[in-house]
Design a protein around this nucleic acid. Structure first.
Length: 454
RNA sequence: GAGGAUGUAGCUCAGCUGGUUAGAGCGUCUGAUUGUGGUUCAGAAGGUCGUGGGUUCGAGCCCCAUCUUCCUCCCCA
């Protein structure tokens, strides 16, 4: 058979993996610096843990795993009955009782709900694992991709929002990737919805205005009309999303427009507090109030974040926010959550486009020891010497002509080659050649490590 | 899930209106060159033309199905 990959999945070659691991490493370091601890959960969850948590669209995009043993004769009648359910678009435990994880937030909520008795609250965890979606792949959109999440469960303190914003700022600063952090608050959107005829319009409004950047004002208005808002209310929403300018101006206009509603006041005050703290701690952070930021996910209730790269056409490379009732769906009330997520695949693309990966990442083997046909023990001794000094090296696998060994070194971009043959043995030296400069030296074996670690 | 484009050597791509033995560049391998690479030169290998059917005397090219990748919508990271 011809080998191939399932649609929307990828192999990661060494060159790509080194860059990806660099991103993961930077993020992990910052997470741990703020006291987050790692968590891993299984690739698969019970299907009812996931179903109904991501809306109707989400359910369709969950990868379901077929049960084993459906072919057994004693299960036939049940299996056939259960499959009827599937044909009608429903799920059936008789056919599938497990599914692949769709994001990291719901498994986290499940974990917190299961272990609430044992955890120390506020519980701060980070998680970097692949998730799966049965979406149609496009560029920058895969069926298997990684998410990097940091969440805090069991605290409503605004301190967490502040620290999460600082984490964003630090990570992208460390990656040397210029970004803008957009911030808004669901409480303000709720106030807007109230003015537009009640909170039942919340979803209609958020879905529509979240697309402002993508489809433009006219189409947003059109969509609002289609979603049942009258002209007066459409005009109000237009006024709202037209708010522009620096943070102070935006906040002032928000107050003027919605300040008579309690929830709007709360939201505005929260934003003010976050801005003040972030600007004081890391003044270089570009954080801006963005009224049209809504985020599609329904479970957000307070602050919402989104991060955009500056100077590159790309969707958001990170997002998150506060959700007041994290574990309610699993029967545990009163645990608030707040978290952020990094879109590693997109960050990768942006860094690639900006050529912002550090050069040293591609470094592999430092030295290749030529195989000159002398007794292997001499070569292995030199290799051990280097490795004991944490210098990576390889011994060429067969004693062939130098031409081949040079070309191997060149292809693997190994910067140094070491020759030990009869001549060197007789004089108790080694020959070292720098392949970039072409410079070659004959030195004592003991001085190899210091020479190569430069 | 709906609509559109695409697939030819390891890679990037030519291939006329359906007509003999499907080409190029790069890469790979061999030699010039058995202890000195990158350059150069000579040569070679490498293809069930995505897959399966069909039309035709004849299909890389036309038709149908299917898969991949990409684009738009939906939704999202």
């Amino acid at each position: 058979m011809k080998p191939s990959l399932p649609q929307g999945t990828r192999d990661f070659s060494s060159a790509v993996l080194k860059k990806r691991n660099y991103i993961f490493g930077v993020i992990r370091n910052v997470f741990e610096l703020y006291g987050f601890e790692p968590l891993e959960t299984p690739a698969m969850e019970n299907i009812e843990t996931l179903m109904g948590k991501y809306g109707e669209e989400g359910d369709k995009l969950i990868f379901k795993i077929l049960n084993n043993g459906l072919h057994l004769p004693e299960k036939h009648s049940n299996a056939q009955r259960d499959f009827e359910q599937v044909l009608q678009g429903k799920t059936s435990k008789g056919i599938s009782e497990r599914a692949l994880r769709y994001d990291l937030t719901i498994p986290f909520a499940r974990y917190v709900a299961m272990n609430q008795g044992q955890l120390t609250f506020p519980f701060k965890r980070y998680q970097m694992q692949p998730v799966w979606r049965a979406d149609r792949p496009q560029r920058g959109r895969y069926r298997e991709f990684y998410q990097c999440d940091a969440d805090i469960a069991g605290s409503s303190s605004l301190l967490h929002e502040i620290e999460l914003a600082l984490i964003y700022s630090t990570v992208f600063n460390n990656l040397q990737l210029p970004v803008e952090i957009h911030i808004n608050n669901r409480k303000i959107l709720q106030a807007l919805a109230e003015k537009c005829g009640g909170t039942s319009h919340m979803m209609n409004i958020t879905i529509a205005i979240d697309k402002l950047d993508k489809i433009g004002m006219d189409k947003v208005k059109q969509e609002l009309r289609e979603r049942g808002l009258n002209e007066e209310r459409v005009a109000l929403v237009e006024k709202y999303i037209s708010i522009k300018g620096d943070n102070q101006t935006s906040i002032q206009q928000l107050s003027t427009l919605l300040g008579d509603i309690e929830s709007a006041k709360d939201g505005i005050n929260e934003i003010l507090e976050i801005l003040q703290a972030v600007n004081q701690t890391m003044p270089s952070t570009k954080i801006c109030v963005c009224p049209s930021l809504a985020r599609g996910l329904n479970y957000y209730t307070g602050t919402i974040f989104e991060v955009k790269a500056v100077g590159v056409e790309m969707g958001s490379i990170g997002g998150g926010g506060r959700y007041d009732d994290l574990t309610g769906l699993f029967g545990v009330k009163g645990i608030a959550g707040v978290g952020i997520s990094f879109g590693v695949d997109r960050i990768y693309d942006v860094l690639e486009e900006l050529n912002a990966f550090p050069e040293h990442l591609q470094a592999g083997t430092t030295a290749l020891i030529f195989n000159t046909g002398i007794d292997k023990s001499h070569l292995i001794n030199v290799a051990s010497l280097l490795r004991n000094h944490h210098i990576s090296c390889e011994i060429f696998h067969e004693a062939v002509k130098f031409d081949k060994q040079f070309k191997y070194a060149e292809k693997k971009q190994i910067p140094f080659i070491i020759i030990i043959g009869d001549e060197e043995l007789a004089k108790n030296t080694v020959t070292v050649k720098n392949l970039k400069t072409g410079k070659q030296d004959s030195i004592a074996p003991a001085s190899l490590p210091s020479m190569l670690s430069l």
